[in-house]
């Protein structure tokens, strides 16, 4: 069965007829495989998908796959890293700006919710399916999570951290993540941007109290 899929690909995408430099071919194959593993994993789950599924989706041959990745897990992890890089860049851009910090938080959340809503497969894979690959998923989660708390930390002005809550940014990042996770599990990724007022409020409360959090969440610029 897997061999049939392979033959089909070879027939459709004959080797060595595109006249492109080898590295470029490898790069575009890699990109196609990364996109494919995300789609296939979102559709079938990590356990349910196979390298053959990835190859079929990507239109790439088995040999090329194994030149780039050790196995399906390796491929999925590589895709995960690319997605997290992309989200991190989105967050970093949104966090910049001349506005007061609470408003920048709101803008950042808006960007994050839009990112997830625009990438339902990526959302499902990074938040839900990745856990199935085993203990290494925990490490990746940790790394990614701390990249975002670090970004939030760097964006803070010192007086915004209540003395009582030195580890406050973990709470902040967790607020959004837990809710996004829940919506993803329920298959409501596309509705995520609607959560902006609620999540802005919840994220800001520990930093600035309920009143400022409410007015920022409602978009009342003071």
């Amino acid at each position: 069965m897997t061999d049939n899929a392979d033959d089909l690909r070879r027939w459709r995408l004959p080797r060595g007829r595109h006249g492109l430099p080898r590295e470029l071919v490898a790069r575009s194959q890699r990109e196609r495989l990364l996109a494919a593993v995300v789609r296939v994993t979102a559709a079938k789950g990590y356990e349910g998908m196979s390298v053959a599924d990835i190859l079929e989706q990507a239109g790439v041959g088995r040999q090329s796959f194994y030149e780039l990745f050790a196995d399906k897990r390796d491929c999925l992890l590589a895709a995960h890293d690319v997605l997290v890089d992309d989200l991190e860049a989105t967050v970093a851009v949104a966090l910049e700006g001349p506005q007061p910090w609470p408003e920048r938080v709101r803008a950042t959340l808006a960007a994050v919710l839009d990112w997830f809503a625009a990438n339902p497969d990526a959302t499902r894979v990074t938040l839900v399916e990745l856990a199935a690959i085993g203990p290494i998923a925990r490490e990746r989660f940790q790394d990614s999570f701390h990249r975002f708390t670090t970004l939030l930390d760097e964006g803070l002005d010192a007086p915004q951290v209540p003395a009582e809550l030195p580890n406050i940014t973990s709470l902040a990042a967790g607020t959004a993540l837990a809710r996004i996770y829940e919506e993803t599990v329920w298959g409501r990724t596309s509705d995520l941007p609607k959560l902006l007022p609620e999540l802005t409020f919840e994220l800001l409360v520990p930093f600035v109290g309920e009143d400022v959090a409410r007015s920022t969440a409602d978009g009342e610029v003071t």
Binding site: Q142, F145, L171, A173, A178, F201
Partner: peptide, 22 residues
């Protein structure tokens, strides 16, 4: 309070997961 208890639970979930994972 005006914060959603379910958000509180989500925060705990992430916090514990993070501590366990680390």
């Amino acid at each position: 309070g005006s914060s959603d208890p379910r958000i509180a639970f989500g925060r705990l979930q992430i916090l514990f997961f993070d501590q366990l994972a680390g």
